[in-house]
Design a protein around this nucleic acid. Structure first.
Lengths: 334, 334
DNA sequence: GTGAAAGCGCTAACAA
DNA sequence: TTGTTAGCGCTTTCAC
């Protein structure tokens, strides 16, 4: 910038004004400055600007896995809102590792992002308290923060799961399995709670061998599914399964498509919608969340905070929607 | 940092040494400094560090759409490589808009990212020449740069498409349609070239009404597909379709599942693999690329440049793989 | 082993 | 309309 000023024969501040489109520069000087900028290939160094202004026009996003079809539209939605506010998005995947979430979040804070959207992997966010106190707006998404108060945007996991299981019950099922994500994860617990509530409302007993929480890798899901389906867990075989998220659902679709179960169609309702669910045979009934809407809501709340909204922490709950397509309407064999 | 120094009763530089793990601090002073850091909730301001050191330990990634199932694993792979090198990832979507690509890329440069991975939407990247000259390592991914020389990592689109169309020909098809992305996009052109090459090799004529390039939105694809399939374009109806990318394939799967075509199964081979392709009926035969591998290769090349590799610009071509699943092996009705 | 001073490139505040 | 000065928070240099 100094070089530009020298070349244009003006003061530093004049160049700054031109670069930032501030008023108070005669069109002639402006032209000279612009010429010098082009000639020198000058581009403002935003690091210096950040240092001086104390604001970075960037926000951070921490999700579980950027490549997951649930998180990728969510990230894109956050990006669009950021863009509308002139901010860039720095994002990273925690890989469901609390330590990695922490590292990422703190690295983002060290870069002085203006705000942070976090899908937590950890259940203790006290490490963020100093940052939040120092002014980093923070919104938790999909899962609540642990041991601190903060804004959050959640899907109604409990009600979604409850209605999905009630749907299976309404179609005549009495023995229903639940396969969900790891038990430490808030949404997994809430969805399981919804399952239990629906069963209890209908006066149906739940065998503990029908309930399986754990990693969403396909091996674990296959094992648990097989146990429920063939009755080797000790209780009678289930006639329907409720799946806790899109990763589990995809594995279950594969399991249920295998020859051994083909003769005895098993009903399936999955939490989360996914692409092509309607073209499978049978098409898959789901409890749909809108990941883009979740991302957008969280980002908008974040920018409202950055614009100075000073209310106490808020919780936004987003509804889910049952999409009946076929797999959830298969009756039990009687 | 000044406050920490004051509180610990040491000099500024000593705090800096502790924070950065440099040698030359007695363990006693180190302890005092660490206490002050915790007490004050101090976190190094990386903007200042960047300003001083001239390097940001962050890289930028510009893709078409972060939410697209082709780009999201690619982004994740770039992120993992960045993480392994201690760098953060700033990324954005160009939405296939050259102006937006330019804005994003220049904004990233203004933040002084150390390097840039770009999936180009534009066909003229001369705007990046000053940045590259100024030391921003740049790798183009999936499509080559326009009007400048730079590193690039590409899939072998030509050979992939050629082999896919040859596969259809080997299964007896003589009238084959091609539906691809917009004609300005390099991969679309290459894949079309592959299609023409395979047809020519087999001595088959190509009616121009069998070829359709354009936006990947479902309306356009539906219209073009219907024209080829019912012969309303003037030429005889096609018995097979080759699809130029995963968005087009998904729409075609929907079109071909509709009642009007059910009676006359149409063969389909798609460029790009996608989740659940194997569970559709019929399962979809694809030319698979490995998006994660593309991302990883590009990022690794980028970091090799950042580590000082000084060779002239390189082009890496990644192979594709035909995955036969059923839809591409449907014979023509004779 | 430790610290003081200079300066990275920019913008805010104030002069002219 | 334009320029000058100070300083954002850190690291580098060099002296102690």
């Amino acid at each position: 910038m100094k070089d530009v000023a020298a070349r244009a024969g003006v003061g530093l501040k004049t160049v700054s004004r031109v670069v930032n489109g501030e008023a108070g520069v005669s069109s002639d000087t402006e032209r000279r400055v612009r010429e010098a900028i082009t000639a020198l290939g000058f581009r403002r160094n935003d690091s210096a600007r950040v240092l001086r202004k104390g604001t970075t026009a960037s926000i951070g996003l921490v999700v579980e896995d950027l490549a997951d079809p649930f998180y990728s539209p969510l990230s894109r939605a956050v990006e669009e809102v950021a863009r509308a506010h002139g901010a860039l998005l720095i994002n990273g995947s925690s890989a469901e590792d609390p330590e990695r979430e922490r590292e990422l979040a703190l690295a983002l804070c060290a870069r002085r992002v203006d705000g942070l959207v976090i899908v937590p992997a950890s259940d203790d966010h006290r490490y963020l308290a100093p940052e939040i106190a120092a002014g980093v707006a923070t919104v938790f998404l999909d899962r609540p923060p642990g041991r601190i108060e903060a804004d959050m945007v959640l899907s109604d996991s409990f009600e979604g799961a409850r209605s999905g299981v009630a749907h299976l019950i309404a179609h005549g099922h009495r023995r229903i399995g639940f396969i969900g994500d790891r038990p430490g994860i808030h949404t997994a617990k809430e969805r399981l709670r919804g399952y239990r509530a629906a069963m209890a409302e209908a006066g149906l007993p739940v065998s503990e061998s029908w309930v399986a929480l754990g990693p969403t890798g396909s091996d674990r899901v296959r094992t648990d599914a097989a146990r429920m389906l063939d009755g080797s867990g000790g209780a009678a075989p289930v006639t329907a399964v409720f799946s806790g998220n899109n990763r589990v659902t995809v594995t279950l679709v594969r399991v249920l498509a295998e020859p051994e179960w083909r003769g005895r169609p098993v009903a399936l309702v999955g939490f989360d919608d996914f692409e092509l669910a309607d073209l499978l045979s049978p098409p898959v009934t789901v409890i749909a969340q809108d990941p883009a809407d979740l991302g957008r809501s969280a980002a908008e709340l974040l920018f409202r905070r950055l614009d100075g909204a000073e209310e106490p922490p808020r919780t936004l709950s987003r509804p889910t929607k049952l999409v009946a397509r076929g797999s959830g309407e298969i009756p039990p064999p009687d």
